[in-house]
């Protein structure tokens, strides 16, 4: 049986059925691991290996989807194993976005409960949530759902025991050590702190997506009157936000999930 604690310098490379190969760098949530995943993702994309359909980077692994009628899977496995994975090429810096959020009330129905749980005031929760700069670890589950790391440890909150069958599109939430931005109305067990008028996914907008893995995110509080106005613009396919340029510091380790 394969080891389950791969050495990051020697990733575990295994077939996933007959249409994908998993390259697992680690089993942890760690910005350095995620940076290595994204570097590997960029390197493989640049190689444009024949038969590779698409690459799916996640927190700590890269899934290589291939077409078995266009490439011999054993040959692809060997090719991936021969890559110098220990020294992935540095990746261009992620972009920095500032996302407007209406906190509390009807926009964030769990704000007060989260505050009470941690012995904080709602204002303090908002201050902690907006003070951090988050890393986009992954976009997944549904189009545009953005998984963020970098939540202040004072806000780490176990997921709800009874997930809600529906949470509104645009929900800005926290679950465990993570923070997130929902693109669509989805079921969720995360705690809803607020809502953003920004559509992280809008198929009728160019571009349809805004935030990508490796990007950085900050939140900015807005009042409900502002929300309504911005929401009208977003409904007309205005992206509302644009990335800022700023040099990026080396990733800091953070607590594990």
């Amino acid at each position: 049986m394969q080891t389950t604690h791969p050495d990051p310098r020697r990733p575990r490379i295994v077939p996933v059925g007959d249409s994908a190969i998993l390259i697992e760098l680690a089993e942890t949530v760690d910005p350095a691991v995620n940076a290595a995943v994204l570097a590997l993702d960029a390197e493989l994309a640049a190689l444009a290996l024949p038969g590779v359909v698409e690459l799916l980077p996640t927190y700590r692994s890269l899934l290589v989807h291939y077409d078995p009628e266009r490439v011999e899977p054993e040959a692809l496995l060997a090719r991936l194993a021969s890559l110098d994975l220990a020294h992935p090429t540095a990746r261009p810096e992620g972009r920095l976005w500032t996302v407007p959020v209406a906190y509390g009330g009807e926009y964030g129905v769990d704000l007060e409960a989260v505050a009470a749980r941690h012995g904080l005031s709602p204002e303090e929760v908002v201050a902690l949530h907006t003070a951090a700069t988050y890393r986009v670890y992954m976009v997944g589950f549904v189009p545009g759902f953005t998984y963020l790391g970098g939540l202040d440890p004072r806000l780490h909150t176990p997921r709800r025991e009874d997930p809600r069958p529906r949470t509104p599109a645009g929900s800005v939430s926290i679950g465990g050590v993570q923070a997130g931005i929902a693109s669509l109305e989805i079921p969720s067990g995360w705690h809803l702190l607020g809502r953003t008028p920004v559509r992280t996914f809008d198929p009728e907008r160019t571009p349809p997506f805004l935030l990508e893995p490796g990007d950085r995110v900050r939140f900015r509080p807005i009042d409900p009157a502002n929300f309504a106005e911005l929401d009208r613009r977003a409904a007309a396919h205005d992206p509302l936000i644009a990335p800022e340029e700023e040099p990026r510091a080396a990733p800091e380790p953070e607590p594990q999930a």
């Binding site: 389950t4 996933v16 059925g17 249409s19 994908a20 998993l22 697992e24 089993e27 942890t28 949530v29 799916l56 996640t58 927190y59 700590r60 692994s61 890269l62 899934l63 989807h65 992954m138 997944g140 998984y147 999930a257």
Partner: peptide, 15 residues
Amino acid sequence: ARSPNIVSDGIVFGS
């Protein structure tokens, strides 16, 4: 053998 939760990773058709 271990926790039923992993750090999320990729899914394929038939996982």
